[in-house]
Design a binder for these strands. Structure first.
Lengths: 238, 238
DNA sequence: CAGTGGTCTAGACCACTCC
DNA sequence: GAGTGGTCTAGACCACTGT
């Protein structure tokens, strides 16, 4: 981490999280911060913009930057969070079972979702996620082979996301998420502990790389009582 | 709209939407744009950052800004969208029925949600939203009276959001959204056309003002088959 | 009024991609 | 090597908040 504004951002996050900068007080002004960190005001402003976008402060014109009570945020804010990170953050021991791991010709549906040629092959991964002894989540991942040449059961039991970012150095850039509620399929009933529930929550994820190409489609199917999604929206100033 | 970067942003959005700037091609470079718009590069970059954050382009270092196929985005992207805007965008004629509009002492639950004193009063508004003849959404709004002194049935039938922003000049700054799935309550069964569905999707909304104070809590309860939520997440550079 | 954040400028150097 | 976006600087003026 060599970027000055990212370092300043991270230092301020730490100060807020530890409570050295108290909630509901004001951050030092941008002019003060620029002197403290010996940098330009625009660089400070980049750090503060990040803090604001991630829910740590609220900037008020003519007044200052109010520090927000960050301990209210009991759940990941937004962005791309993997099951493993998520479960660990909540203090649970996650268990992942791989039910299927195959390289195949994509179905028409997947071909359309991933905008593939006729000769593209895809990895299909089907996993269930267990928390507190119950199979809560059914994850179906489709990854384009030309981007991910190799995939093993070990990787899938750990975190595909980790493998892509750290091993393959594929940098995920943006994802479109869609949430809907549907009737359970036969597969859902078979692989999940549905426990009498009549619906499953489906999160469809379209994951893009840095060059804007689409390379992964994921369906995460949750038992409705164990599903929770939190999102922040803010009027953005730059 | 006097901000230069917002004007440039808006002009580029229009060019992309009308197809004058074609999807999967590159935007002119930042240096070219700075000359075209007779401005500085940082100002161009602010406009492009907005385009990127709103899903219109994908910036690639060393290459350029790729224009994304925007017609794929058939739903509002994120942020604070009112029911009225939403319904109109989808070409439906929305119908709103106000079931309750009272000024009352808040229940303990609401008092806690809105962090109120004992003497604060709140408006409670209960409305159903109808599309294509079916009552699909049950909206329960709680607004703190000290911010919203007056509220009428006409306002509630139109758009509370409009009234707050345009008439009262209350500027909404950020909102935290939480989505969960629950069993229908008696009230849900009574006021919605549940049509045999066993769950409702609850969107809880905590709305803050510019000065970071919390002034509105909303529960929007949807029939599961008519619920759809779309979200973009992106690695943000500034 | 002084102090704050919001916008804008005209440079500079770097890391990256493509040829 | 030429061109791209990413970062950074040291100023400037404005609109807004508080007193």
């Amino acid at each position: 981490m060599k970027n000055k504004y990212l370092m300043i951002y991270q230092q301020l996050v730490d100060l807020i999280k530890t409570g050295e900068l108290k909630a509901n007080t004001l951050l030092p002004s941008e002019h003060e911060l620029k002197d403290q960190y010996d940098t330009s005001r625009e660089t400070i402003r980049k750090a503060l913009t990040l803090l604001s976008q991630n829910g740590y402060i609220q900037k008020v014109k003519g007044k200052g930057s109010i520090i927000i009570d960050v301990n209210k945020f009991d759940f990941p804010v937004s962005g791309l969070v993997s099951f493993k990170e998520l479960a660990e953050k909540m203090g649970n021991t996650p268990k992942t079972v791989v039910h299927e791991l195959t390289l195949e010709k994509p179905s028409d549906f997947i071909k359309q979702q991933l905008k593939l040629n006729n000769k593209d092959q895809v990895w299909k991964v089907v996993r269930t996620r267990e928390m507190a002894g119950e199979k809560i989540i059914l994850d179906k991942d489709y990854l384009v082979k030309k981007y991910v040449p190799e995939l093993t059961e070990e990787i899938c039991e750990d975190s595909i996301y980790n493998y892509l970012e750290n091993e393959l150095d594929l940098s995920i850039s943006f994802a479109k998420k869609e949430i809907i509620v549907v009737e359970p399929t036969e597969e859902d009933r078979e692989l999940l502990d549905l426990d009498g529930f009549h619906n499953v929550v489906v999160i469809k994820n379209y994951v893009h790389l840095e060059d804007a190409s689409l390379f992964q489609y994921t369906e995460s199917r949750h038992r409705p009582d164990k599903f929770r999604f939190v999102d922040f929206a803010r009027r953005s100033h730059l």
